[in-house]
Every structure is written in structure tokens, then in C-alpha cells.
């Protein structure tokens, strides 16, 4: 399964690891912020209407 990366294996893997971690962190933070903002808004709108 794993391709033979030769002597540069560490280099390639670390580049992929760092990038994917950064991307995942960014996506996760964005989703979390979105959920939080929406929940807060719904709470307040519920208070106003209820």
C-alpha cells in the first residue's frame, strides 16, 4: 500500500502531516465557531419569541 518514498520519506511525510494537521485544525475551528454562534443566536431568538 505505502509507496516507496526512498531516502526522502521523512521529508515527504512530515510535509503532508504538517499540512493536513493545519487544514484539519482550521476546518475544526471553523465548524466549532459556527456551531457556537448559531446556538447562541438561537438561544437569544428563542428568548425573544418565547
Amino acid at each position: 500500500m505505502m509507496p516507496d518514498l526512498g531516502k526522502y520519506g521523512d521529508t515527504v511525510l512530515s510535509a503532508y502531516a504538517v499540512s493536513i494537521v493545519l487544514l484539519v485544525i482550521m476546518v475544526a475551528l471553523s465548524i466549532r465557531a459556527s456551531r457556537k454562534a448559531r446556538a447562541e443566536l438561537q438561544k437569544i431568538e428563542g428568548r425573544r419569541n418565547g
Binding site: 482550521m26 471553523s30 459556527s34 454562534a37 448559531r38 447562541e40 443566536l41 437569544i44 431568538e45 425573544r48
Partner: peptide, 20 residues
């Protein structure tokens, strides 16, 4: 996708602020 999501977050936040 991220810009859509994050812009929506900002709009929600601003609306919350206005309502408060």
C-alpha cells in the same frame, strides 16, 4: 466552503450582538 461557513458564523455573531 470555509468562506461560506465562516461568513455565516460572522453574520450569526453580528445578529446576536445586535439583539443583545
Amino acid at each position: 466552503a470555509l468562506v461560506f461557513l465562516r461568513t455565516r458564523t460572522e453574520i450569526h455573531k453580528r445578529r446576536t450582538k445586535a439583539l443583545l
